[in-house]
Each structure stands twice: as structure tokens, then as C-alpha cells.
């Protein structure tokens, strides 16, 4: 149970203080929720609020670089953040929460109903990280997920997203405030079509098999898309209060098909 709080003044101090019994806290919208497991498991919280240099949004060679402490509202109001990321940030319907929640916190939370990760996966966003021994790295968001799930301690310092790419996204939930059963994004990148999704209580995925199918045959039919997800055995999808397994697979299929058409400029 967290009883200590360290107000880190720099990213180096924050990253250097990260041990197995410590956890970062950014906007606190996940960590400070009643019943959150983060403070229950950590002894020390390392607050990033006073860390210098994590709050800028700037244009860089590879796209737009967003400091990990930038809030969802800053992203929405920025003049240089691409619209597709603003759309994903607006999936967080509450303005007061948007004033608090950060992009770094959203990535690190790795929630299966993540607002931003499907979009960041689809555009192959880069994540700048700092390890406890002071090593800086620039890794793809998918590698961040794998490393984090393997227990590696890393402070996210910034996220780089491409500008000038066509992206489509959709979030399925009962109300704007409810948890989403499915959040999906697709992008038309130089290397081709990409598709990612966050399935509540299952996980966040890049659907590489589907991507390959579309690259081979851009004119797939809706039936083929539905059949793909119906038969995608590697995707472990369970039935829960958000819907049956068949319903979730069907949603994946029809949404993926819609995205293919939209990115190709066809009517849906």
C-alpha cells in the first residue's frame, strides 16, 4: 500500500527512482481511482507533475512529438496534433478528466478498453522511454507494450505520431461515458493498410493477418472480413457483460470492412 510520494523534478530522477515497489503517477485518473491496484501494490508513488520537459508538443522530423505529461485536453486544443489523435482523445468524454489524464498514463495503463492505443498502434507511433539506469530509447508502441508486460521499468517521456496520414477510428460503447466493448483504428500508411483494436477484457492487438489479407486483396467483401474474425483462433475472446464472443467477433469484422472502404474513399 503506497504510503510515500516522491515529487520527481526531472525525468532522470523519476526514472532512476523506479523500483519494483514504486509506481509512476501522472494525471492520477487511473492510479487515484478508488480500488485501483497501482497504489495497492506499490510502496512509493513517483509523481511526474513537477518533472520538467515532459509537457511540450512540437513538430519534429518524423511527425509530431507529444510530451508524456500532455493532457488529453492539451492534445484536443493543440494546433499541430493531427485530427485523428484528437478524435481518439475525445473518446474520453469527460472534460474534467481530459484536463487531468495524460497520454503517457494512457499508454502505460495498457487498458483493454484503451482510448488511444488502437490509434497509436495503427499509426505505428514511436514511444521515447528512459530506463532506471538512464538509458534513452525510441521504440515502437507495440514493443513498449511487450516490454512493459514483461515487467521492464520504463518512464515514457514522449510519443511521436506521424502527421499527414489517413486514419479512421471507432469506439463502441452504450454511452459516451461507458466503457467500450471495442475501440478500433485503421490507417493507410506508406507500407500499406494497418488495423488495430482494443477489445474489452481481452487485450490490444494489431491484426496483422487481416492486414496481409487486405494488402493482397484490397477489395475484400464484408463476408470475408466477418469470416476472418470469426475464425481468428489466435484471438482469445471471452463472453462477458459487454457481449457474447460471437457479437464481438462480428463487430470486429464489420468494422474492419467499413474501415477498408473508408480508407479507399468508398461509400460505407
Amino acid at each position: 500500500m503506497a504510503t510515500q510520494l516522491l515529487m520527481a523534478k526531472s525525468p532522470a530522477e523519476a526514472a532512476g527512482s523506479k523500483t519494483a515497489s514504486a509506481a509512476f503517477i501522472a494525471g492520477g485518473t487511473e492510479v487515484n481511482r478508488l480500488g485501483s491496484e497501482v497504489p495497492a501494490q506499490a510502496e512509493t508513488l513517483i509523481s511526474l507533475k513537477k518533472c520538467s520537459g515532459l509537457g511540450q508538443i512540437e513538430k519534429v522530423e518524423k511527425g509530431i512529438k507529444i510530451g508524456s505529461m500532455c493532457t488529453f485536453q492539451q492534445i484536443v486544443e493543440s494546433e499541430i496534433v493531427p485530427d485523428y489523435l484528437k478524435e481518439a482523445a475525445l473518446f474520453m468524454a469527460s472534460r474534467t478528466k481530459r484536463n487531468m489524464a495524460t497520454i503517457g498514463g494512457n499508454i502505460a495503463a495498457l487498458r483493454s478498453d484503451s482510448y488511444l492505443l488502437p490509434t497509436l498502434f495503427a499509426v505505428c507511433a514511436r514511444v521515447e522511454v528512459l530506463t532506471p539506469d538512464g538509458k534513452q530509447d525510441d521504440i515502437c508502441v507495440n514493443s513498449y507494450k511487450e516490454a512493459s508486460e514483461a515487467g521492464k521499468d520504463m518512464l515514457i517521456t514522449a510519443v511521436i505520431v506521424p502527421d499527414n496520414v489517413k486514419v479512421v477510428s471507432k469506439r463502441y460503447s452504450n454511452t459516451a461515458q461507458s466503457h467500450a466493448v471495442l475501440t478500433m483504428s485503421a490507417a493507410a500508411l506508406e507500407k500499406g493498410f494497418t488495423l488495430a483494436g482494443a477489445i474489452k477484457n481481452c487485450g490490444i492487438y494489431r491484426f496483422k493477418g487481416f492486414e496481409e489479407m487486405v494488402r493482397e486483396n484490397p477489395d475484400i467483401s464484408e463476408e470475408e472480413a466477418i469470416a476472418f474474425f470469426k475464425g481468428a483462433d489466435s484471438l482469445k475472446i471471452s463472453e462477458d457483460m459487454f457481449g457474447s464472443e460471437a457479437y464481438k467477433r462480428y463487430l470486429l469484422g464489420v468494422t474492419a470492412y467499413d474501415f477498408c472502404r473508408k480508407l479507399a474513399g468508398k461509400e460505407v
Binding site: 510520494l5 503517477i25 492520477g28 485518473t29 487515484n32 481511482r33 478508488l34 509523481s47 485536453q73 469527460s94 472534460r95 474534467t96 478528466k97 484536463n99 487531468m100 461515458q177
Partner: peptide
């Protein structure tokens, strides 16, 4: 952080004070 009943204004902007240290 769900209901907004705890909202206060901090430096000109609304925040959910229940999830703010």
C-alpha cells in the same frame, strides 16, 4: 472520477478533486 460531483476549479479549469492528490 465518474460522476463529476467533486468538481472544483483549479487555476481556471475544472478537475475531479476525488482523483487529484
Amino acid at each position: 472520477g465518474e460522476c463529476g460531483a467533486c468538481t472544483v476549479i483549479i487555476d481556471g479549469e475544472g478537475f475531479n478533486s476525488c482523483i487529484y492528490l
